[in-house]
Structures are given as structure tokens and as C-alpha cells.
Design a protein around this nucleic acid. Structure first.
Lengths: 154, 154
DNA sequence: GTACAACTTGAAGTTGACTTCAAGTCAAGA
DNA sequence: TCTTGACTTGAAGTCAACTTCAAGTTGTAC
């Protein structure tokens, strides 16, 4: 076993595609040295970074957020288990929030199905912010969009 | 109150932007008649369709799926409450599945933070399919990607 | 030394769900 | 009638996270 890996070896071991690895390197999420001929060689420690990236992606973080998280790792020494644990601890809250939002949506759906309304005036499911209806009720069903591309301004 | 609405009235009442309404019409999700001059006029019943679309978007359906769902509505008569209820009932399962996936992820995260591993060989959080590790263990942590843009084909 | 798979680059393409733009037309109040 | 805001269209732009492509270079097994 050599102590550096080619891009295809790294791809096979990390589960990312080679083009994704090139993209991550270009974006500054991972690092690679080069051969004299210019080919990438990845240190094994990059596999751990990639594992972190994979996990963070599963949690729903954007690459920008992941990059920021990775920048919190110590530069002068090899990150320890405790370092990795520290920067991933906040995911727990994020997941709890996401689960909570989905549960509120599901419960709202139950009542909507019960009444069959789907009314813009009354149904919180389709009108989370009570845009049209009674503005006195402060109840906001979904404080922010659950799925990224679903909110419009105007 | 007139019985048809302009695009900006419809936008205000539905919460969608005017450009989104044009887009939905072009994609065949909603319908509009025209004035002699060519301007759109929306029947009030379209507001209910739009309420459905808004709710379905919150549940995470794509426009394509929503279009398919809407095509199940009866064409020859005005949809009843029961019609709307019927086609939105399946959302419940979808939400349950999504919630379940997130909960499994959260619980996996807890054990990962506990051990601090984040190892490609051992950690199911970053290596959901056990690509590198022991292939004997049939346990698959996340059977499919939770967040759309996170899977690559080799 | 040769073959050939694996690698390199920059540029362009992909996806979904819109938004923005430019240039022109319509509707309605005074 | 005039004005002006609302409306129309098609085309192009946006976003993230990559993938695909073309054309050329490198590494290595024989």
C-alpha cells in the first residue's frame, strides 16, 4: 500500500466520482499534491475529509457550509477525533429542526385531509403564512421553506 | 368582486409570483382564459388548484409529480373536497418516510459523535452503503439519498 | 520503446423551478 | 383622448453541484 492515492483510487474509496473530487479540489474543500507530470495524488488523510463531506452532504449542508466547517479544523496539526466530533455536533440540532418541521407539516396535513378544505383562506398547509386570511392570528405554520425551491418573493 | 382575476390579483391571493403563474400555465398545471387583448384571466377555481400546488410543493413534490396528481382530478365536473383529499392522502406516507430517514440519520449521527470515528471503513454516517467495508453486513444505513443532489455515479 | 489506460485542462452542458429582461401592447381612470 | 400601470412574449439568466466533452499528456506494464 502506497501512502498516496490516485484520483481513481480515491474515488473508489470515498464513493465520490473523480469529477466531483476535481470539483472539490477546485473549490478548496480538499487538497492534493501533484506528480512531476501534473497528476493528482491524494494523501490518505483526505479520505477522512471526504468522509466528513459525505456525512455533511447527507445531513443537507451545502458545500459552502461544509467548507466553512472544515476551515475550523486546526491547520497546524492533524485533526483528532475530538476535532471532527466538535464540528459535526451542530448537525444534531439541524436534524432535529428538520424533523420538527416535517412533523408539523404532517400533522397539519392530517387536519387538512380531515376537513378536505385545502382552502387558501383557512388551510395552513397551503397557506403557511396566512397571507390572505386573518392577519390577527400570529400562528405561522412553517416559518421557513422546507424544500429550497419553493418560495417566491413579490 | 368579479368572477375572474388578473394575474396580479391571482398572484396576491395565491402567494405565487406572476412569473411563476405564467410558468405554471406554460407547463400545464393551471389554466387561464384570455381577454380580447390577450391578457390572462384566472377563474377562482384556479386558486384551489394553486393551493394544492403550494401544499404539494411544501411536501416536496416536483412540478412533474404535481402535474400528474392534478391529472387525476375529474375533468367533467368541479372537483369536490373528496377529490382533493384523495389525491393528497399519499403525502402522508411520503412525509412519514422522510421523517423516518432523518431520524435514522440523526441516531446514526449520535453514535458517530459518540465514537468520533467518521471513518470510511466503519462509520455508516459517511459510508451509508458500506462501500469499502465488510460487505457481509447487509445493514444499509440510508437506502437512498435524503437530499437530491448528493449521489454520484462513479 | 510502445501501447494504452488513466490522467490533465478549460469550457460547456445538465437539472428544476423559476426570474429577469427588453420591447412592445392593453385596460382603465381622469 | 391621454396617460400610465399592468400586462404580453420569447429569450436568456440564475442557482448548486456537479457531469460531459474534446483534445492533449502521463504513467506503467510488457
Amino acid at each position: 500500500m502506497e501512502d498516496v492515492l490516485t484520483i481513481s483510487e480515491t474515488a473508489a474509496r470515498s464513493g465520490f466520482s473523480a469529477s466531483a473530487l476535481r470539483y472539490y479540489e477546485r473549490e478548496g474543500l480538499i487538497d492534493a499534491s501533484r506528480t512531476q507530470g501534473g497528476q493528482r495524488r491524494f494523501r490518505r488523510s483526505e479520505l477522512r475529509r471526504l468522509a466528513f463531506i459525505a456525512a455533511a452532504r447527507h445531513v443537507g449542508l451545502t458545500l459552502e457550509e461544509i467548507k466553512e466547517a472544515l476551515s475550523l479544523l486546526p491547520a497546524e496539526r492533524t485533526p483528532t477525533k475530538a476535532d471532527w466530533t466538535r464540528i459535526s455536533r451542530s448537525w444534531r440540532h439541524r436534524l432535529d429542526d428538520e424533523i420538527g418541521a416535517l412533523e408539523r407539516l404532517r400533522d397539519g396535513l392530517d387536519s387538512c385531509i380531515g376537513c378536505g378544505c385545502l382552502s387558501l383562506q383557512r388551510c395552513r398547509l397551503s397557506n403557511p403564512n396566512d397571507i390572505v386570511a386573518d392577519r390577527g392570528s400570529g400562528a405561522v405554520f412553517l416559518p421557513e421553506p422546507l424544500h429550497p425551491p419553493s418560495v417566491e418573493r413579490q
